[in-house]
């Protein structure tokens, strides 16, 4: 056990937030496994990116603020950087998958045309 002097008023919400964040991220990852196709699976990880990291960061802010005895909010920066970077990744994956499907369709059409002709 780490010896801290945090009051229950901090410990309880922090624990709840950590459990919530963990659960939401787990369900999101489960989505990555269970959803039927690529485009549907894109939606899973964004749960972890939003509510998942969000609750962990709020828990971190509460803990550090309580320990330091003053507001500690630089976790907000992590939120900012995630908001700026993670959509770019999933948009690029999305575009790549669309492009791959298009190429595949064109190939199939070409093959069909070759068979017919």
């Amino acid at each position: 056990m780490i010896d801290t002097d945090l009051s229950a008023w901090v410990v309880i919400p922090v624990s709840l937030l950590l459990v919530l964040g963990g659960l939401v991220t787990l369900i999101g990852s489960l989505g990555l496994l269970r959803l039927p196709d690529f485009f549907a699976r894109v939606h899973g990880p964004s749960m972890g990116n939003t509510v998942g990291t969000g609750s962990v960061l709020i828990a971190s802010m509460l803990t550090s603020s309580a320990l330091a005895g003053r507001p500690v909010v630089h976790e907000l920066l992590i939120t900012l950087f995630i908001v700026m970077s993670s959509p770019v990744t999933s948009m690029m994956l999305m575009r790549a998958a669309l492009y791959r499907n298009k190429v595949r369709e064109e190939k199939q059409q070409a093959a069909r045309a070759a068979n017919a002709g």
């Binding site: 939003t50 908001v83 959509p87």
Partner: peptide, 28 residues
């Protein structure tokens, strides 16, 4: 708009048309 739509689970930005008038979205 792209960042909001993509960060929201259930909707994902799939591209903008050449002239920027039509937004393609994937909805779960």
């Amino acid at each position: 708009l792209a960042a909001i739509i993509t960060s929201t689970p259930g909707t994902a930005w799939a591209g903008l048309s050449e002239d920027g008038s039509v937004l393609k979205l994937h909805v779960l």
